[in-house]
Protein backbone atom coordinates (compact mmCIF):
# COMPACT_ATOMS: atom_id res chain seq x y z
CA UNK A 1 0.00 0.00 0.00
CA UNK A 2 2.81 2.38 0.89
CA UNK A 3 4.39 1.72 -2.48
CA UNK A 4 1.19 2.75 -4.19
CA UNK A 5 0.90 5.95 -2.21
CA UNK A 6 4.56 6.94 -2.47
CA UNK A 7 5.24 9.81 -4.85
CA UNK A 8 7.46 8.87 -7.81
CA UNK A 9 11.04 10.12 -7.93
CA UNK A 10 11.24 13.45 -9.76
CA UNK A 11 12.52 13.25 -13.33
CA UNK A 12 15.66 15.31 -13.89
CA UNK A 13 18.11 15.66 -16.79
CA UNK A 14 20.34 13.26 -14.85
CA UNK A 15 17.71 10.51 -14.72
CA UNK A 16 19.15 7.81 -16.99
CA UNK A 17 17.22 6.48 -19.96
CA UNK A 18 17.17 3.09 -18.33
CA UNK A 19 15.17 4.39 -15.36
CA UNK A 20 12.83 6.36 -17.60
CA UNK A 21 12.16 3.30 -19.74
CA UNK A 22 11.39 1.22 -16.64
CA UNK A 23 8.95 3.84 -15.38
CA UNK A 24 7.36 4.29 -18.80
CA UNK A 25 6.92 0.52 -19.01
CA UNK A 26 4.97 0.72 -15.75
CA UNK A 27 2.64 3.23 -17.38
CA UNK A 28 4.12 6.54 -16.21
CA UNK A 29 3.30 8.90 -19.05
CA UNK A 30 5.63 11.56 -17.65
CA UNK A 31 8.56 9.18 -18.08
CA UNK A 32 7.67 8.57 -21.71
CA UNK A 33 7.29 12.32 -22.22
CA UNK A 34 10.80 12.78 -20.81
CA UNK A 35 12.19 10.16 -23.21
CA UNK A 36 10.43 11.95 -26.05
CA UNK A 37 11.86 15.32 -25.09
CA UNK A 38 15.32 13.87 -24.67
CA UNK A 39 15.46 12.19 -28.09
CA UNK A 40 12.97 13.94 -30.35
CA UNK A 41 15.44 16.47 -31.72
CA UNK A 42 17.85 13.81 -32.84
CA UNK A 43 15.17 11.51 -34.21
CA UNK A 44 13.54 14.30 -36.19
CA UNK A 45 16.87 15.42 -37.63
CA UNK A 46 17.71 11.82 -38.53
CA UNK A 47 14.37 11.39 -40.29
CA UNK A 48 14.69 14.74 -42.05
CA UNK A 49 18.08 13.63 -43.37
CA UNK A 50 16.68 10.31 -44.55
CA UNK A 51 13.37 11.52 -45.98
CA UNK A 52 14.49 15.03 -47.03
CA UNK A 53 11.02 16.58 -46.71
CA UNK A 54 10.50 18.56 -43.50
CA UNK A 55 6.74 17.97 -43.24
CA UNK A 56 7.06 14.25 -43.87
CA UNK A 57 9.90 14.13 -41.36
CA UNK A 58 7.66 15.70 -38.70
CA UNK A 59 4.91 13.15 -39.37
CA UNK A 60 7.45 10.35 -39.36
CA UNK A 61 8.85 11.57 -36.04
CA UNK A 62 5.42 11.46 -34.46
CA UNK A 63 4.81 8.01 -35.93
CA UNK A 64 8.17 6.83 -34.58
CA UNK A 65 7.37 7.85 -31.02
CA UNK A 66 3.82 6.54 -31.20
CA UNK A 67 5.21 3.15 -32.28
CA UNK A 68 7.90 3.34 -29.63
CA UNK A 69 5.19 3.82 -27.02
CA UNK A 70 3.32 0.74 -28.24
CA UNK A 71 6.45 -1.41 -28.45
CA UNK A 72 8.12 -0.14 -25.27
CA UNK A 73 6.86 -2.96 -23.02
CA UNK A 74 8.84 -5.37 -25.21
CA UNK A 75 12.14 -3.48 -24.89
CA UNK A 76 14.30 -5.76 -22.76
CA UNK A 77 17.58 -3.86 -22.82
CA UNK A 78 16.38 -0.68 -21.17
CA UNK A 79 19.74 1.06 -21.47
CA UNK A 80 19.57 0.82 -25.27
CA UNK A 81 16.56 3.03 -25.85
CA UNK A 82 18.42 5.37 -28.20
CA UNK A 83 19.60 2.81 -30.80
CA UNK A 84 16.23 1.07 -30.45
CA UNK A 85 14.23 4.20 -31.25
CA UNK A 86 16.56 5.03 -34.15
CA UNK A 87 15.89 1.54 -35.50
CA UNK A 88 12.14 2.28 -35.40
CA UNK A 89 12.75 5.65 -37.06
CA UNK A 90 14.66 4.04 -39.87
CA UNK A 91 11.82 1.57 -40.49
CA UNK A 92 9.34 4.46 -40.56
CA UNK A 93 11.55 6.36 -43.02
CA UNK A 94 11.78 3.29 -45.19
CA UNK A 95 7.98 3.01 -45.27
CA UNK A 96 7.55 6.70 -46.07
CA UNK A 97 9.98 6.42 -48.95
CA UNK A 98 8.31 3.28 -50.23
CA UNK A 99 5.01 5.16 -50.40
CA UNK A 100 6.70 7.95 -52.35
CA UNK A 101 7.40 5.69 -55.30
CA UNK A 102 7.63 8.55 -57.73
CA UNK A 103 10.98 9.41 -56.19
CA UNK A 104 13.95 8.17 -58.23
CA UNK A 105 15.60 5.13 -56.69
CA UNK A 106 18.88 5.84 -55.02
CA UNK A 107 21.87 3.90 -56.10
CA UNK A 108 23.78 1.72 -53.70
CA UNK A 109 26.79 1.90 -55.98
CA UNK A 110 29.98 3.43 -54.78
CA UNK A 111 29.71 7.21 -54.79
CA UNK A 112 33.00 7.74 -56.54
CA UNK A 113 35.44 7.52 -53.67
CA UNK A 114 38.46 9.73 -53.88
CA UNK A 115 41.49 7.63 -54.57
CA UNK A 116 43.98 9.79 -52.73
CA UNK A 117 43.89 11.02 -49.15
CA UNK A 118 42.02 14.31 -48.97
CA UNK A 119 43.74 17.42 -47.71
CA UNK A 120 42.71 18.63 -44.28
CA UNK A 121 40.05 21.35 -43.93
CA UNK A 122 40.95 24.88 -42.98
CA UNK A 123 39.84 25.31 -39.32
CA UNK A 124 39.19 29.02 -39.91
CA UNK A 125 36.50 28.24 -42.44
CA UNK A 126 34.46 25.55 -40.76
CA UNK A 127 31.81 27.76 -39.19
CA UNK A 128 28.50 26.52 -40.42
CA UNK A 129 26.82 29.26 -42.43
CA UNK A 130 23.73 28.73 -44.55
CA UNK A 131 25.78 27.97 -47.62
CA UNK A 132 27.88 25.34 -45.91
CA UNK A 133 24.79 23.83 -44.29
CA UNK A 134 23.30 23.53 -47.75
CA UNK A 135 26.44 21.83 -49.01
CA UNK A 136 26.41 19.46 -46.08
CA UNK A 137 22.78 18.55 -46.76
CA UNK A 138 23.52 18.06 -50.46
CA UNK A 139 26.53 15.89 -49.68
CA UNK A 140 24.44 13.74 -47.33
CA UNK A 141 21.69 13.49 -49.92
CA UNK A 142 24.16 12.10 -52.45
CA UNK A 143 24.83 9.09 -50.22
CA UNK A 144 22.66 6.00 -50.52
CA UNK A 145 20.01 5.83 -47.80
CA UNK A 146 21.57 3.00 -45.76
CA UNK A 147 25.02 4.56 -45.92
CA UNK A 148 23.63 7.97 -45.01
CA UNK A 149 21.73 6.48 -42.07
CA UNK A 150 24.83 4.75 -40.74
CA UNK A 151 26.97 7.87 -41.09
CA UNK A 152 24.38 10.06 -39.35
CA UNK A 153 23.98 7.63 -36.49
CA UNK A 154 27.71 7.91 -35.91
CA UNK A 155 28.53 11.55 -36.65
CA UNK A 156 25.32 13.28 -35.71
CA UNK A 157 23.91 11.04 -33.01
CA UNK A 158 27.02 9.58 -31.45
CA UNK A 159 25.96 5.94 -31.47
CA UNK A 160 28.69 3.34 -31.03
CA UNK A 161 29.43 0.93 -33.87
CA UNK A 162 27.70 -1.83 -31.90
CA UNK A 163 24.58 0.27 -31.47
CA UNK A 164 24.55 1.17 -35.16
CA UNK A 165 24.86 -2.50 -36.07
CA UNK A 166 21.83 -3.21 -33.89
CA UNK A 167 19.81 -0.32 -35.30
CA UNK A 168 20.65 -1.14 -38.92
CA UNK A 169 20.63 -4.91 -38.64
CA UNK A 170 24.17 -5.10 -40.01
CA UNK A 171 27.35 -6.86 -38.96
CA UNK A 172 30.06 -4.83 -37.25
CA UNK A 173 32.52 -5.00 -40.20
CA UNK A 174 29.77 -3.82 -42.52
CA UNK A 175 29.03 -0.86 -40.27
CA UNK A 176 32.68 0.15 -40.21
CA UNK A 177 33.06 -0.23 -43.96
CA UNK A 178 29.91 1.72 -44.79
CA UNK A 179 30.77 4.56 -42.43
CA UNK A 180 34.31 4.76 -43.77
CA UNK A 181 33.09 5.02 -47.35
CA UNK A 182 30.39 7.53 -46.42
CA UNK A 183 32.93 9.63 -44.60
CA UNK A 184 35.29 9.76 -47.54
CA UNK A 185 32.49 10.80 -49.88
CA UNK A 186 31.28 13.47 -47.46
CA UNK A 187 34.75 14.92 -47.04
CA UNK A 188 35.33 14.99 -50.79
CA UNK A 189 32.06 16.90 -51.26
CA UNK A 190 32.77 19.37 -48.46
CA UNK A 191 36.41 20.06 -49.14
CA UNK A 192 35.90 22.78 -51.78
CA UNK A 193 33.70 24.66 -49.28
CA UNK A 194 36.00 24.22 -46.32
CA UNK A 195 38.92 25.95 -47.93
CA UNK A 196 41.55 23.30 -47.44
CA UNK A 197 44.60 23.13 -49.70
CA UNK A 198 43.83 21.53 -53.02
Amino acid sequence: MLRLLRRPEPITPQTPDEALVARAQRGESEAFRALFERHVLAVRRFLRDLIRQPDSADDATQETFARAHVQLPRLGERDRFKPWVFGIARNVAFEVKRVRQHQPLESDEDEGLPAAVLPAPDPERTLLDRELEGQLSAALADLSEPRRAALLLRLDHGLSYDEIAAAMGWTLPMVKNEIHRARLALRAALLPHLGGPT
Partner: peptide
Protein backbone atom coordinates in the same frame (compact mmCIF):
# COMPACT_ATOMS: atom_id res chain seq x y z
CA UNK B 1 35.49 19.56 -38.33
CA UNK B 2 32.76 16.98 -38.88
CA UNK B 3 31.84 17.05 -35.23
CA UNK B 4 31.63 20.84 -35.18
CA UNK B 5 29.52 21.01 -38.33
CA UNK B 6 26.99 18.47 -37.08
CA UNK B 7 26.79 20.10 -33.65
CA UNK B 8 26.11 23.53 -35.12
CA UNK B 9 23.51 22.04 -37.40
CA UNK B 10 21.82 20.26 -34.49
Amino acid sequence: TERRLFRERA
